[in-house]
Amino acid sequence: MVAFRDRALSLPVADALVLADLHVGRAAASPVEFPLGERDDLEERLDALLAATSPGTVVLAGDVLHAFDRVPDGARGTVAALARLVETAGADLVVTPGNHDTMLDAVWDGPTEREYELADGTVVLHGHDPPERAAGRYVVGHDHPKLTVEGRDWPCLLYGEGVYEGADVFVLPAFTRLASGVSVNGRPGRASLERSPLVTDVDRFRPVVYDSAADEQRTFPPLGRLRRLR
């Protein structure tokens, strides 16, 4: 049993919470002159998720940082603040580095694993490279999926049953709200999502959207069928 909440996946059996693609420093890279509130937003939403799910382990599934070649002002403080939130909640924090995380050791000296196996056998990794460890379920990030409905964008989880060598795959949206995301229910999204080696046939994935007003998740038909309904 898993539950999709605010851009994150709760796995109660594994006593874990997984989020991906924080892209800390994305605000500093923006051409916008006024503050975007990146740190406050990440802290408030992670704090709410920790309170709601009470995990024993929190896994950041890659792209903790945005820039490849530098650590922008404030990034160290933001990562440290997020780590303190997790520690205060009584959970362990683990990072599985992503393709953007070439400077990760400048902001994080805690547990880092390319692939992290949860207590229920689920393997978490960023998803830009194929997994080395066999599993019945993978949770990845990397592709930033969103569903576009009547001009409104909804960050979505993608769930594919048995899509990667017989294993289930969950693709998380970007946890940062500063990433625009990739629309999955149109042809441009199809091409972009197939960057990940774990997304071998995107038409078999079901989008799952979290409705914060109703505090529930809504599951859509597989993308191959959903596109034909447009």
Rank of each mutant, 00 (worst) to 15 (best):
1 M>R: 14
4 F>A: 02
10 S>E: 12
10 S>M: 06
12 P>N: 12
13 V>A: 11
14 A>F: 05
16 A>E: 04
17 L>I: 07
19 L>D: 07
26 R>T: 15
36 L>H: 12
36 L>K: 15
36 L>Q: 13
37 G>N: 10
37 G>H: 13
40 D>H: 13
43 E>R: 10
44 E>I: 07
45 R>V: 04
46 L>S: 07
47 D>R: 08
48 A>L: 06
49 L>P: 00
51 A>M: 15
51 A>C: 13
53 T>N: 07
53 T>Q: 03
62 G>M: 04
63 D>Q: 03
64 V>A: 14
65 L>E: 15
66 H>P: 03
67 A>K: 08
67 A>T: 13
68 F>C: 14
72 P>G: 07
72 P>C: 13
75 A>W: 08
79 V>G: 09
79 V>L: 05
80 A>N: 04
82 L>T: 12
82 L>A: 05
83 A>Y: 15
86 V>S: 02
87 E>Q: 11
89 A>K: 06
94 V>C: 06
96 T>E: 12
97 P>D: 14
104 L>H: 09
105 D>T: 11
107 V>Q: 04
108 W>E: 11
110 G>N: 11
112 T>N: 13
113 E>N: 07
115 E>Y: 00
117 E>L: 14
119 A>M: 12
119 A>R: 09
122 T>Q: 14
124 V>H: 01
124 V>R: 04
127 G>S: 12
128 H>L: 13
134 A>L: 11
142 H>E: 09
142 H>A: 06
145 P>D: 11
147 L>F: 09
149 V>D: 13
151 G>F: 07
151 G>T: 15
152 R>P: 10
154 W>Y: 15
154 W>M: 11
155 P>G: 01
160 G>A: 09
160 G>T: 08
161 E>C: 13
162 G>N: 09
163 V>W: 10
163 V>K: 03
165 E>K: 01
169 V>A: 00
171 V>E: 01
172 L>C: 02
172 L>P: 00
173 P>A: 03
175 F>E: 09
175 F>L: 15
179 A>G: 13
179 A>K: 01
181 G>V: 03
181 G>L: 00
181 G>W: 05
183 S>Y: 14
184 V>D: 01
185 N>L: 03
185 N>F: 03
187 R>M: 14
190 R>T: 14
190 R>Q: 13
190 R>N: 10
191 A>C: 10
191 A>P: 02
192 S>N: 11
193 L>D: 01
194 E>Y: 05
194 E>H: 09
198 L>C: 03
199 V>F: 09
199 V>P: 00
202 V>R: 00
202 V>K: 01
202 V>P: 00
204 R>T: 15
207 P>V: 02
214 A>N: 12
216 E>P: 02
219 T>M: 11
219 T>A: 15
220 F>K: 06
222 P>K: 02
224 G>Y: 08
225 R>T: 14
228 R>E: 15
228 R>K: 10
